[in-house]
Simulated assay, not measured.
Amino acid sequence: MQMSRSELWKNFRLGEELDVTGTFIYNGLRRFHELHKLDYSADLFEVFYQLSVGIERLMKIAIVLLEHDDANDQDAFERSLSTHNHQSLLERIQKHVDLKLSSSDNAFLHLLTRFYENLRYDRFSLKSPLALGKEKHELFDFLERHLQVKFDDRNSIFGYQNTDQYKKFIRKIVIRIASGLYGIIEQRTRTLGLYTYELRHGSKAETVFLGEANIPTEDILWKELLVFFMNTKETSGYLNFLRGIEPLNFDPGLVEDYLDCFQAYSARTQVADEMETLYEDVPDAGERLRLIGVIGSPNVHFPEDDDDEAFEDEPNPFDEPPSK
């Protein structure tokens, strides 16, 4: 049976939108996980913006599936979605389904609404030019109220660390909200005979809605891979290629800073400056960049991997670049 226009909209366009919402939510959680400090408005703006947009749009998918009818005034219905108030969207959803949220979940939605409706453009106003760091104060108020922690001197020059406790708490709240909304979308679309709930394999949306955005596990992954590359005695075309590149003369005393590059943007920017300086001493920087560019590229083929015999006793196979 051929789908109607509204069914095509709900099945495909909203399915595409579900992928978008999951991406926003994942990026917000990922960014919060990366933060070392909770004191900078730009960092928290990035977190709150992505989470507020992602959850808002996820709510609107649920509302379309729950409320839309072909007999509706389509223009009026679409105008009713032009709001950034998470509470009003939640109330519409709860008229149709039993979506239970905890007090901390609801409070977090209030925080996102205040951010998106007020704080997002607050710095463009002359009303309170000295009221700095409002995102920080919103977050501190929220954490104090729901975790019974205390931020005594909020303007301390030392700032406040983003602890594992804070990361876990925010992630659990966001995942509870997102999972509840996704469950409504899945149940409703199954009832309607649609496939809007299907998620692209390996997508950020799948990670959020089905994998609970287990970002700490992602951190374990890169650490385990690093240990593997440093310690494996196995050989392959790729491993030999990596071993054949002369390392830059980084400072062994700064290992901690270098490792931080894998998980924090601010660390990467600092070490990148050091790398640029080291490249000034590379005789043929262009050739080195060509070799480095091979690492991680798709469809790289090392001919020696076609042979079952080991290459330990043969000359360096990288006198010629690997084919791509």
Rank of each mutant, 00 (worst) to 15 (best):
Y238T: 01
I93N: 03
Q50V: 05
R114K: 15
S88E: 14
R268L: 10
N231T: 10
F250P: 00
D284W: 01
D273K: 13
F302S: 01
G193M: 06
P317F: 09
D307Q: 10
R190P: 00
P252Y: 02
T217M: 10
P317T: 04
S266I: 09
L278C: 05
Y238C: 01
D70W: 02
V97I: 12
S125V: 04
P322K: 12
S103E: 15
I215M: 09
T23P: 00
D284M: 03
E304C: 06
F108G: 00
L259N: 04
N72D: 15
D306E: 14
I292F: 10
I215Q: 09
S102K: 14
W9G: 00
M275P: 00
N85W: 01
P322Q: 10
H110V: 09
K37P: 00
E56H: 09
I184P: 00
L130T: 14
L239A: 05
N162Q: 07
S128D: 14
I157W: 09
L58Y: 04
V149A: 08
D19M: 12
E280K: 14
L14R: 11
E276M: 15
S236V: 06
N106Y: 01
L239Y: 08
L111H: 13
L109F: 02
P317K: 07
E309N: 10
L254Q: 14
H36W: 08
Q187D: 05
L51K: 03
V294K: 06
R79W: 13
I177C: 03
S125L: 11
R188D: 12
Q148Y: 04
E117K: 11
Y265P: 02
Y166E: 03
F241R: 07
W222M: 05
T207G: 11
E314K: 11
A264M: 08
D153C: 08
L38W: 03
I295A: 00
R154V: 07
R123Q: 05
Y121F: 15
N106S: 01
E212I: 03
D260E: 12
R176K: 12
T191L: 12
F318S: 11
R13P: 01
G15H: 08
V53F: 14
R13A: 14
K100P: 06
I220Y: 04
G286W: 08
R5Y: 02
I184N: 01
F311N: 06
A76V: 03
V271D: 02
P216V: 04
L111M: 14
K324S: 06
F32L: 06
A213W: 07
I185M: 07
T23H: 11
I61F: 12
C261N: 00
F151H: 04
S88K: 13
F124M: 06
E256N: 05
I175L: 08
T235E: 09
D313E: 07
G15K: 12
H96P: 02
L8A: 05
V271M: 13
E117C: 04
L111F: 14
L44C: 03
D284R: 08
Q2I: 12
D105M: 04
L8V: 13
A285S: 05
G244H: 01
E17V: 09
M1L: 07
M1K: 10
I215E: 09
